[in-house]
């Protein structure tokens, strides 16, 4: 690894799918990256900046990113179209421990864009099986913010998919309320293993509910989001206690998470 790890490579956008007003999915040409689900890339547009983005899906010759427009870089990314180029380096981080999920009852508790890093896992289980049972609990703020609608509908065929929103609308057919509240309906009957992705408050609430439903701490896996700059353990922004989210995470076991203090 003598090469400069900060130098990104140019990658072409093969396809753009609009998810919501703020969120778009980009399929990017990038052969041979072979990421582990849950890993992320540092994505940049020269002269605008760089930011970490989870790999939402991948194949042998493309990578998919799903970007919510919140600021400078994500705003500029949002304006890109098919055929444009962006720059990437990575993949970074550890990814999910898939071997720990094999053959188990899996409960995923996801807040909004937290669906992004697990999408490729669910797709693979959908295509090839591999788990005993999958409960996919997804919370969005409003019905208009629901992403991956097609995928969610397809996954319903094989898995228990429950979608909830914080604020309903008159024609919203789904549930209303916090996603963490759904945990007690699905976990508990048998030894489940859980994946939790979302904002800090949601992670806390979901973990509490999982523990109440007697899911073991060892069986809860959390993907943390922290401010990042370098993605490779140098810039210090993502450090919590003695752990670097970009190197040692973003996926941590709950046993570790409970000892980490920002």
């Amino acid at each position: 690894m003598n090469a400069n790890p900060y130098l990104p490579v140019r990658a072409k956008i093969l396809e753009v799918v609009r998810q919501t007003e703020q969120i778009a999915t980009f399929q990017i040409e990038s052969p041979g990256l072979n990421p582990v689900p849950g890993q992320f890339l540092e994505v940049s547009i020269p002269k605008v900046g760089e930011c970490p983005l989870s790999i939402s899906d991948f194949d042998s010759d493309y990578i998919e990113l799903t970007v919510r427009k919140v600021g400078k870089v994500t705003g500029a990314l949002n304006a890109l179209r098919k055929g444009d180029h962006l720059f990437i380096r990575g993949p970074y981080g550890n990814g999910f421990p898939l071997e720990k999920l094999a053959g188990r009852h899996v409960v995923m508790v996801l807040g909004g864009i937290g669906l992004v890093p697990v999408k490729s896992i669910v797709n693979r289980y959908y295509q090839n099986g591999g788990v005993k049972r999958l409960d996919l609990l997804v919370g969005f703020r409003t019905p208009r913010e629901v992403i991956f609608q097609e995928e969610l509908a397809r996954w319903q065929e094989k898995f228990n998919v429950v979608i909830t929103v914080d604020q309903g609308e008159p024609d919203w057919p789904g549930r209303v309320g916090l996603v963490s509240e759904l945990v007690k309906e699905v976990a508990g009957q048998e030894r489940a293993v859980a994946i939790v992705v979302g904002p800090p408050a949601m992670i806390r609430a979901a973990a509490e509910e999982l523990l109440k439903s007697r899911v073991a701490k060892e069986d809860i896996w959390v993907s943390l989001e922290r401010r990042m700059s370098c993605g490779i353990g140098k810039c210090g922004h993502c450090k919590i206690s003695d752990q670097y989210v970009c190197l040692d995470g973003p996926v941590f076991n709950y046993r570790q998470v409970e000892k980490l203090v920002d």
Partner: peptide, 20 residues
Amino acid sequence: CTCFTIQDLFYQDNAECGER
């Protein structure tokens, strides 16, 4: 202390060029 932040900028007189 080693912490840093990466930033991009472009040059006022030539917006096609810049630096990270």
